[in-house]
């Protein structure tokens, strides 16, 4: 297919989204501040804003109403009596199947998935992007092209092969572990443990690292490519090697892109549903999966207020990141947009 440099630059062209957004508007200036055109303009924007804000508002008000009030009124009515009962229930008591310990389990699962996934995926991508931009070798661009094309393949195509890979790798590692562990310990039975990748958090961490790779590698590769080659050459003349240049020269200059990558991965992994369903067992389901199971469970009476509290709770992490990171988020999603 196309050569990866041009392929990458197409995407890189989207990266300055954030910078360009800071440019200030270019369009024609509305004439007078209270002209009809102006009223129409702001009116339209306000109306559209209602559509965008409505769900947030509905989630919020529903989650602080009692069930009787919900049954009487409508979704848009402000609460007559504010109660935090639904939040408590969503967090600590809501049931999925036989477990009735609320969303907190899913939350902590998600945290346990999130932290290693973010660290691992960013570390791998950082090193790969650096190697691809500054230590090119024959064939490295080809591998990169394949990786980028991979970003466009529907996940469903690769789901099952990965199941097999995780299971087999787990089995293989178990064999190695059981064969060699006797060397390290003599305690009876301590070598029975199995290494399980499929159906475990570590497997999911690997999956997130794999699917995060195209976009993150692209992000880092383009960033490092923008660092002048002469700086890299100077460091080589100064006797720094692969790791020395990475840690001493490149990394201290990479803070902005690291933050962007972090935002991208935290929201992406937190919001994941598909991989969580496929690659973990029920006790380890991330928050999104558990949320869906709570809300869409067919048993019992529907408690809409609890459902909305749970929904809002799940959305809270990415929303917080969004509102605090502001423009960096825009830059992150613009770069991550290829993820589709």
């Amino acid at each position: 297919m196309a050569n990866p440099a041009t392929l990458a630059s197409t995407f890189a062209a989207k990266q300055p989204v954030h910078d360009r957004l800071d440019d200030g508007p270019h369009g024609p200036r509305p004439k007078r501040s209270f002209s009809r055109a102006n009223i129409f303009l702001y009116g339209t924007l306000a109306l559209v804003s209602i559509y965008y804000l409505l769900p947030l508002y509905v989630m919020l008000v529903t989650s602080v109403k009692g069930m009787p009030e919900i049954r009487m009124g409508n979704v848009f009515a402000p609460p007559m009596e504010v109660t935090f009962e639904p939040w408590v229930k969503a967090w600590a008591e809501a049931c999925t199947g036989v477990n009735c310990d609320g969303l907190s389990r899913g939350f902590w699962n998600s945290v346990r998935i999130l932290i290693p996934s973010v660290l691992l995926s960013i570390t791998i991508a950082l090193i790969s992007g650096y190697a691809l931009s500054k230590w090119k070798f024959k064939g490295s661009e080809t591998f990169f092209t394949i990786l980028i094309i991979g970003a466009f393949i529907p996940y469903q195509v690769m789901l099952y092969p990965i199941v097999i890979m995780l299971r087999d790798t787990g089995g293989f590692l178990t064999d190695i572990w059981q064969a060699t562990c006797g060397v390290f310990t003599s305690a009876e039975g301590s070598c029975r443990g199995r290494i399980q990748l499929f159906g475990s958090l570590s497997g999911l961490v690997i999956v997130h690292s794999i699917f995060g790779m195209p976009i993150l590698v692209l992000l880092f590769r383009n960033y490092f490519a923008s660092i002048p080659d002469e700086l890299f050459k100077a460091a080589r003349v100064d006797g720094a090697g692969f790791w020395g240049i990475l840690f001493r020269i490149m990394l201290p200059m990479s803070m902005p892109i690291l933050v962007v990558a972090m935002i991208l991965q935290v929201t992406g992994i937190w919001n994941d549903f598909l991989f969580g369903v496929v690659y973990t067992r029920a006790e380890q389901y991330p928050m999104t999966v558990q949320l869906n199971n709570i809300v869409n469970s067919v048993q019992g009476v529907k408690e809409y207020n609890v459902n909305m509290a749970a929904t809002l709770l799940t959305g809270l992490v990415p929303l917080t990141i969004y509102f605090f990171s502001g423009k960096l988020f825009v830059r992150g999603i613009a770069a991550g947009a290829v993820k589709g």
């Binding site: 270019h26 200036r29 994941d272 549903f273 869906n292 869409n296 990415p318």
Partner: peptide
């Protein structure tokens, strides 16, 4: 519309973009 030198551009942009931070699960449920 946002490019027409309006006031509160940042606010409107924040409002239009925040749903993108949410998962499809949250979107679907709400």
């Amino acid at each position: 519309l946002l490019d027409r030198k309006i006031r509160f551009e940042d606010t409107f942009r924040t409002i239009f973009l925040y749903p993108f931070a949410l998962s499809f699960i949250v979107t679907g449920l709400v």
